[in-house]
Design a protein around this nucleic acid. Structure first.
Lengths: 125, 125
DNA sequence: CAGTATCCTGGAAGATACTG
DNA sequence: CAGTATCTTCCAGGATACTG
């Protein structure tokens, strides 16, 4: 943890390797992880809350993605031995370090989308 | 382009929506685009150079990904009507705005990977 | 409530052969 | 050199039914 210095290689030489990117994409990519991560970035949520708030996701997928994020050390799963059962999910410390990554991607995506929109309306008619 | 202010929403409220992220993932995600983008970030390259430098990619995939990036306005395809034919690919202005996104993802990926490595070697034996 | 267990499908990617 | 054209394979994700 000490050996890895630059949290932002942005200002200096900007070393970009597809290897690190592939790793990141494996962790936060796919159809459902962005939705899950965005929600958990705002705070702890129960399984049922996630399921309700993410429209169209199947239980199979929700569980699978949550387990992956958990084993990647991004989120934590807390089981409360009650009746009825309660399970809460929340970001870990490591998970929270993704915030800037998610923000950068979200930000660029929205910008690019607005530019395409602009270009489309320009060209049409 | 003027209406879109925050290049880094990082410092302020950090609005993250999965919609913008999904868009970004669509543009730079997948198995091959990271590799292509990293190479073109360093400068113009010919089709053959890309093919040689990206180990394992098939011609079908290389062409398909290049066409997608082109239609997304990320890269430009320049054809030189010579014999033998020459085709060069390079980042557009818009494409270059992805640099910080790629760097952030690459950076975080490498950090996370080194942490996992650390954790693994710790746990093993 | 918070999941498992199966079966199934569409689209992304691979392999291979051919061409302006 | 820089691609197309087909055919095939693989797997992320979907649909549905069941359970501690």
């Amino acid at each position: 943890m000490r050996k890895y210095t630059s949290t932002n290689a942005l200002n200096e030489k900007m070393i970009i390797d597809s290897c690190g990117m592939a790793y990141t994409l494996g962790v936060l990519g796919g159809r459902w992880k962005p939705a899950i991560l965005c929600r958990l970035m705002h705070g702890t949520m129960r399984y049922g809350e996630l399921k309700k708030s993410i429209e169209g996701i199947s239980e199979r997928m929700l569980v699978a993605q949550l387990r992956e994020l958990e084993s990647d050390g991004i989120i934590e799963r807390k089981v409360y031995p009650e009746v009825p059962p309660r399970v809460e999910y929340e970001m870990t410390q490591l998970g929270l370090t993704m915030k800037s990554v998610l923000a950068t991607m979200s930000d660029w995506g929205n910008m690019h989308r607005s530019l395409v929109q602009l270009h489309t309306t320009e060209t049409a008619e």
